[in-house]
Amino acid sequence: MNEIWDWAYTWEILPILARASLVTIQATILGFILAATLGLVFAILRMSQSPWISLPVAGFVEFIRSTPLLIQIFFIFFVFPEFGIVLSALTAGILALGLHYGTYCSEVYRAGLANIPRGQWEASTALNLSGYHTFKDVIIPQAIPPVVPALGNYLVALFKETPLLSAIAVLELMQTAKILGSETFRYTEPITLVGIFFLVFSLVTAALLRQVEGWLKRRGGG
């Protein structure tokens, strides 16, 4: 019990942690899909001509960006039920992750949209394209590819925030590690393994993103 690292225990808990990592990955993927979608919506709404739309959206984005994700998770999980919206812990967590990172993604999209020359908008108007078609067929295909690497960074950042879901008892990696630790009073192995998992996964994702970045650059250049 006093040794620094217990290998037998490590092998025993590894499959349990591997299963829990599926929840972490699920939360990451769903959260990011939500974030990427919401981000685009925020970015487009912020470009609205009407200050009645753009200002509140800008204020909301600033508000979400300046307050802790943990409190937002608590807010969605504890406050929403007061208004009759009862969500499971995992759903609340994914919603909070998606919303929080959606505001970050919206800044990325904004940069991408700002880089589109004015002439593209004017040409679309000249061709009598509707607002929807201008966005879908002209602006988005040019604005999105350059910002993919920046979005990818937020995917990694979101992934690293998923342990916060343990605070509302979602059985993801961190929560599972904490339960394992409290059962056996050995926290060293579970928490270190979780740390290694995150490190490996972040490094692999970062390497993949660099590949995608290179591919996009080649495609854009050719």
């Binding site: 342990p163 979780v194 740390g195 995150f198």
Partner: peptide, 12 residues
């Protein structure tokens, strides 16, 4: 420190 979560570091 950049590759792992802040919460994991805190707990560690």
């Amino acid at each position: 420190f950049r590759g792992t979560s802040a919460l994991v570091q805190l707990f560690w």
